[in-house]
Write a protein that binds this DNA or RNA. Structure first.
Lengths: 116, 116
DNA sequence: GGTTTGGTCAACCATTCGGTTGAATTTGCC
DNA sequence: GGCAAATTCAACCGAATGGTTGACCAAACC
């Protein structure tokens, strides 16, 4: 499964997963440390991390026997742009911003899928 | 159930529901007309509309025997703000975007002192 | 009044989700 | 080598999802 609007929004729909993302905002963390503040099993957290990984919202890298989790905020871009299409509440000019994003993406890394 | 990040993101996680929201971007629509382009039963669409309503993303008003659906983009605000808390993490992209904005602004109006 | 139209309700079904537990696997430590 | 730590795997469970169909209800039409 790849990062799409479906997988990203679904990943964000769970409070545990949003809390994990917020924790990773501060720094990269090992799986065990991610699990520590939650009152659920390590296996459950491991599953949540897998879902976040499939959505592209985090990446996991194993060093030694420890697997480090890193926030990947770029995965929020497509979803954020999609949402901004609905609101006048955004101060930023959407058309200009989208044009900017397109230029930036086509010049940059791998093409991100538009998921629809 | 009230509009929360949980209900909003969960509602957005389904492609049918996102398509419905996009349709409502153009104009208010009756339930039957919303259902028309989809290859699923009216009852299924009715359920999707209930989920969107509980998330606060649309409102429904019955006039005569027709129930009208109206987009409520304000419901996206909290979710959008939450997401943008993560987007600010890209120093490179942010710099590029600010440069872009400055160019955009200086083309349209008097350049302001120090964008801060 | 009878029938169509617009929409929901209720029951059902298969699949997915979020969680558990216990066993397995890999890596680091003595 | 042997044990402990870090993580995942596999099987299971109950609840929620997304869909169906058929009955139902309310408003409109002839």
């Amino acid at each position: 499964m790849e990062p799409t609007l479906d997988t990203v929004f679904a990943a964000l729909a769970d409070p545990t997963r949003r809390a994990i993302l917020t924790m990773l905002l501060e720094d990269d963390m090992a799986v065990t440390d991610v699990a520590e503040p939650f009152e659920m099993s390590l296996a459950a957290i491991s599953k949540h991390l897998a879902i976040l990984t499939r959505a592209g919202l985090i990446s996991q890298e194993k060093r030694g026997r420890v697997k480090w989790c890193k926030l990947e905020p770029d995965a929020l871009k497509a979803a954020s742009v999609w949402m901004q299409g609905f609101g006048q509440f955004e101060p930023v000019n959407l058309d200009a911003f989208e044009a900017f994003l397109e230029r930036e993406l086509s010049a940059g890394q791998e093409p991100r899928d538009s998921a629809e």
